[in-house]
Amino acid sequence: MSDTTHDGALATSKPPSEDAGLTPAELARKYGLSVSGARPSLGGYVRELWGRRHFIMAFSRAKLVAQYSEAKLGQIWQVATPLLNALVYYLIFGLILNAGRGMPKGAYIPFLVIGIFVFSFTQSSLMAGVRAIPGNLGLVRALHFPRASLPISFSLQQLGQLLYSMIVVLVIVIAFGNYPRLSWLLVIPTLALQFVFNTGLALIFGRMGSKTPDLAQLMPFITRTWMYASGVMFSIGEMLKGKPHWIADVLQWNPAAIYMDLVRFSLIDSYGPHHLPPHVWAFAVGWAVVIGAGGFVYFWKAEERYGRG
């Protein structure tokens, strides 16, 4: 405490300075001060993010673990939840509505399960993106870190969730007589591309959701429409038989359908290339690059505004 008063006495006794006439901006320039909370350059932003990669990983892993920490069965729900989901859809679409018509027997259940899990990977990344900033305002207002860390770690969390679901998928696929073959490896690039696409989507909606939290209320309706239009529980080609061919192509070129069909094509023997739309890999890469890079730039453009209430 004695040291405090000493400081104070020292401070007041200093002679008047030559800085007296300077405006705040000039003073700041003279001593090399920078504007607080200013947006870094795009390159600088990428470097900052890279510097926080451990935080991003730890945050997504923490979220994944925290999800079921109150349940008695704990982490078993990571696998049980997608399994129950698949069961419900099978009851309704497989047994009651018979949406699997036109498909070989035994192909429909793997088809459905893959569709649900791959689609919900995109869907939940999107939803998490919308809530990324409003749901973590405490963190955003307390600590300084590149805000893109949040949407990115949320899509990483969903990737972790999907990997659990893929265990269920592989068991089901094998149970229906599709045995491991070389084309299974195609799942890896497909999901990697989908992850990039999802992250871009989460970043885009992260910015929109930070300005308009109401989006969180609206999104379930949009994603449900998207789900029904993407052929999650039926084959688009079969359903649109007799309609002009381009309608099916356009629906199948939508990113959710592309990634779903590619995973199905890789894992299910009887789901041959004729189920895929033309230029399918070009679209898979294109969507990932355009949405991934575009979303990142779009999110970065509002970096300095995310704390605002």
Binding site: Y31, G37, A38
Partner: peptide, 20 residues
């Protein structure tokens, strides 16, 4: 929070040395 760069200013500026 504004000094820390966590809340954007409506107008005016905060200059700082390093990251508060």
């Amino acid at each position: 929070r504004a000094i820390a760069g966590l809340l954007p200013c409506e107008s005016g500026r905060v200059y700082t040395d390093g990251q508060p």
